[in-house]
């Protein structure tokens, strides 16, 4: 019963770690609740929830700062925090763009970056951007902190590299260098409040007529948000142009593994992913 689930609301990381150290059976972290409250109301996996650790008011996890070339986004930064942030606009404007496209105002006010990452849905809209940006996740718990590359964090369908006694603390992202761009597009059914059918993020710069530092990631086309290394390799060092884009599209088609589900067919996702790739590349 939902009414039987105890909740411990903490205000600091020390308090959170003390709860995690006790390793209560079925401990589940609650941030803004925009995924977890929906799952709880739908009784999805409810039997596996024995205790809730409510971290929403841990203010040390709610920050967005730009320091040298590194953008640090606390796990509890909300979409509203991201889209209001000067630091985000300066370092990685795509993160402000995606924040404005997630849900609508009420969801943006409560949904957090950490929740999007730890919910680990292949349709999570920030995930392709974080992977393409080259983000590192800093996670921590009573046993200490460690760093995990974003692309290694998503280990299987909705499974992350987090241990049961660990929290995501923050994402660290290298800010765009002069001449570099990170472009992103999600395709849904309408602008507000819709789950993506396919999404793609491309980070690169064009130097002396050649693509350099290409990083590409895609959402909704595999069990996990996917770094597209073959597509990157097809572009790296070559010039922009129709032939290069066609080769990249073929490489992308070879490495994605979309499925049919109630929102779209695999064939549709393949077409959309390829179209979006070409549109994004045309921006360089």
């Amino acid at each position: 019963m939902i009414a039987d689930i105890p909740v411990t609301s903490v205000r600091s990381l020390d308090e959170a770690y003390a709860v995690l150290a006790r390793r209560a059976a079925g401990l589940r972290v609650l941030a803004g609740g925009t995924d977890l409250m929906v799952q709880i109301q739908a009784r999805v996996g409810l039997e596996r929830i024995g205790h809730i650790l409510d971290i929403w008011k841990v203010s040390e996890l709610r920050h967005v700062t730009l320091d040298g070339g590194t953008l640090r986004v606390g796990a509890l930064a909300t979409y509203t925090d991201l889209l209001r942030s000067e630091a985000v606009r300066a370092a990685l404007p795509a993160l402000a763009q995606v924040a404005r496209e997630v849900g609508a105002w009420a969801i943006q006010n409560r949904g957090t970056l950490g929740g999007n990452v730890c919910n680990a849905s292949p349709a999570g809209d920030t995930l392709p951007i974080l992977i393409a940006a080259g983000a590192t996740f800093v996670v921590g718990g009573p046993r200490g902190e460690r760093r995990i590359a974003a692309e290694e964090f998503f280990v299987a369908y909705r499974k992350t590299a987090l241990a049961a006694d660990e929290l995501l603390l923050r994402a660290e992202l290298p800010a765009l260098a002069p001449g570099e761009r990170l472009v992103y597009r999600k395709v849904g059914t309408r602008r507000a409040q819709s789950i993506s059918r396919a999404s793609l993020a491309v980070r690169a710069r064009v130097e002396a007529g050649a693509f350099r530092g290409v990083r590409i990631a895609a959402g909704c086309v595999a069990p996990v948000p996917l770094r597209c290394r073959a597509t990157e390799a097809a572009l790296e060092g070559g010039g922009p142009g129709a032939a290069a884009f066609a080769a990249a599209r073929a490489a992308l088609d070879g490495e994605i593994r979309p499925i049919d589900d109630l929102r779209a067919t695999a064939a549709y996702r393949r077409r959309v992913a390829g179209n979006v790739l070409e549109q994004l590349l045309a921006a360089f």
Binding site: G33, T34, M37, D54, G103, A106, I107, N109, R110, Q193
Partner: peptide, 23 residues
């Protein structure tokens, strides 16, 4: 969280009251 019929303002921000736990 989809329809907004439960919208309230919580500490200055618009939220869906169906997704906010009492805690």
């Amino acid at each position: 969280g989809e329809c907004g019929a439960c919208s309230v303002i919580l500490d200055g921000e618009l939220v869906n009251a169906c997704l906010v736990p009492a805690s």
